[in-house]
Amino acid sequence: MEWKDVIPVLAGGIVILVVALVVKPVLLGEPIGFGSPGVGVLAPPEYVPPAPLPTATPFPDDGEVYTRAFRWMSIDGGVHTTEIRVPEALFSAARETPRYADHLAWGRYALAPADRPILEDLAGRIAPPVDNPDKEYFRLMNLVFFVQQIPYDKDENTTSYIEGVLPRHVRSLDDGIEYPKYPVEMLVDGRGDCEDAAILMTGLLDALGYDTVLLKYSNHMAIGIRMDAFNPYYAKYTPKYFTYEGKHYYYIEGTDFEWGNVSSSTTARWGRPLAIGDVNGAGIPSVRSETPEIIPLRYIPAPAEYRISPARLPAAGGA
């Protein structure tokens, strides 16, 4: 074989290479040459942790304060007075804060960080620590009774606010107005409606370490307190509880208590708290007939599905 015979073979090979490496990629829109298709638009992502939030500036102790005196009855019948002091700046900040449109977020009112020191102080004075676990129930009921004795007033009444006018962040609803109060607002105003009492009571109970939720009915709000078992022998009713995340929360009314005149010849009154689990005590039809929506004080979003399914890798070089 001579050189001139080899040339066609070489030419054929070159033609094949040109077809494979240039013509075919051009026709199919692939990259020309041996290189694999590159992706250079995005860079490989990196995890960026969230930046820490700046800590809130505490309200000054030396500014103007609202002083409120509460006269209340404990469950043993004794009458007590308790004074609270709320910085005006704290109260004004609460008043000027827009209300949450979503009632599922109302637990945030009870846990407001700025209100917490005041609630811890007040709860400690109303229900001081006990050395005997048997007295824990009385401690709890004293706190419940304290809130139940705060006068009830509707959101639409200007008498419910110390300014004598409706706050600017009241929310208009089809059947009236809504203004859930921060605990300090309820304490300074000295009155409020059912959700205000429920928020204050859950805030105080939380400060004492109780696990509580808000119970929302169609026209009422009450409290649920977690108890593993509550069925006292003296109860003339079956204590009502609701289950949330596998835990039992017993009903507590926040806005009323049992009372009456000591005798017909005196204005002196006796009173006792509406009992835990008694849904008939307050005489509210929705409480007797409805199953409430349970609103946890603490809400952390938790997806149910979040597990990565490992995928099999293709065998190297095909099969």
């Binding site: 990196e46 995890y47 960026v48 942790p49 969230p50 960080p113 603490r298 952390i300």
Partner: peptide, 23 residues
């Protein structure tokens, strides 16, 4: 997930959740 968090402690995991979602 914190057991009995304050509001700030409850908000922090959500911010981390958002960062993980972004990632």
């Amino acid at each position: 997930r914190p057991a009995n968090p304050s509001l700030a402690e409850a908000d922090a995991p959500v911010r981390e959740f958002a960062a993980i979602a972004e990632y």
